[in-house]
């Protein structure tokens, strides 16, 4: 029973990362119709920022979290302006450019951090909360899940309660119709990649003290993000968040009671199954013309 409850706790903590890391991919694809393969590397840059500025040079952790968000948002905006915008009418071109960025960011990370072992960031929040003698939540993870949840709720509020948020969703539903309302698709693309990159930077900064930091860490992030995006419905933001929570719980339970390998394989199988049975994802709608 304790193991069961602990597993739910583990799963919920994980779901925050999954959602935060996936949402940017969904947002950028929805608005710009580009699969940003460098999205995992944006998470990686966020983690490296914390490692370099906080762990190596002693700046306060929270400051470096904000710095990571700003830096990664900047990278996202540069990608939009110089790669995705010129490639606007060529989704394959955008994708190939993003793969180029993926390698560039990996090389820069290697240059900055050097080769060798994965980097480690000592947790700024030490200790573990123990509930009823058996359920354990490290404070660092508690902090991460609270910040992730706050960021996701803010994003949700922005997308459902503000005109700019509706405009972002309108562009992802119908670019032309949005332009006919006077919505600048270029501006909305900047908002989408800016918000998506900010979330990726935040995810990386929150993960930094909890994971192995290396130039290749984006790989696992993007695989998870793909599964979450496809299961949740390509371009569906609520779908992505729900899929992130479900997938995190699923993965955690299967890992606990069977094995991690089976968890990942069955995750990919579910993705394939969704593609066959319901290609629009659990929250996606069939496009009707």
């Amino acid at each position: 029973m304790d193991l069961f409850i602990q597993t739910i706790v583990n799963g919920i903590i994980q779901s925050g990362f999954y959602a935060l890391a996936s949402i940017g991919l969904v947002l950028v694809f929805g608005v710009m119709r580009v699969v940003n393969f460098a999205h995992g590397e944006l998470v990686m840059v966020g983690a490296y920022t914390v490692w370099l500025v906080h762990a190596q040079h002693g700046a306060p952790y929270l400051f470096t979290v904000v710095l990571a968000i700003i830096l990664v948002t900047g990278i996202g905006l540069v990608m939009e302006r110089f790669l995705f915008r010129p490639m606007m009418n060529d989704p394959l071109g955008g994708l190939i450019c993003s793969i180029g960025v993926l390698f560039i960011l990996q090389v820069i990370a290697t240059y900055v951090g050097g080769e060798g072992p994965s980097k480690q960031v000592p947790p700024p929040f030490e200790g573990t909360m123990v509930i009823m003698d058996s359920i354990r939540i490290p404070y660092q993870r508690l902090f991460s899940i609270c910040v992730s949840a706050a960021a996701l709720v803010t994003l949700w509020y922005f997308l459902t309660r503000s005109t700019l948020g509706w405009a972002v969703r309108a562009v992802s539903m119908d670019r032309e119709a949005a332009a006919l309302q006077g919505i600048s698709t270029v501006r909305i693309s900047m908002v989408a990649i800016g918000v998506g990159a900010a979330m990726a930077g935040l995810a990386g900064a929150l993960m930094a003290p909890l994971t192995n930091i290396n130039p290749h860490m984006g790989h696992n992030v993007i695989i998870t993000a793909f599964i979450v995006t496809i299961v949740g419905g390509i371009g569906s933001l609520p779908g992505a968040v729900i899929a992130a929570v479900l997938y995190a719980l699923f993965h955690t339970f299967v890992t606990t009671y069977f094995s991690g390998t089976i968890a990942t394989i069955s995750g990919l199988l579910i993705m394939v199954l969704v593609l066959i049975v319901r290609p629009t994802g659990i929250m996606g709608h069939r496009v009707s013309e």
């Binding site: 539903m173 119908d174 119709a177 949005a178 006077g182 919505i183």
Partner: peptide, 28 residues
């Protein structure tokens, strides 16, 4: 001019097939 600028000049286009934003509410 770009489409989003032309709207501001006072020209509005109701496109073929209605093209409403289906996941948004009527008032949105």
């Amino acid at each position: 001019a770009a489409a989003d600028k032309i709207v501001a000049m006072g020209i509005s286009h109701v496109p073929e097939g209605r093209r409403v934003f289906k996941d948004l509410t009527v008032i949105e």
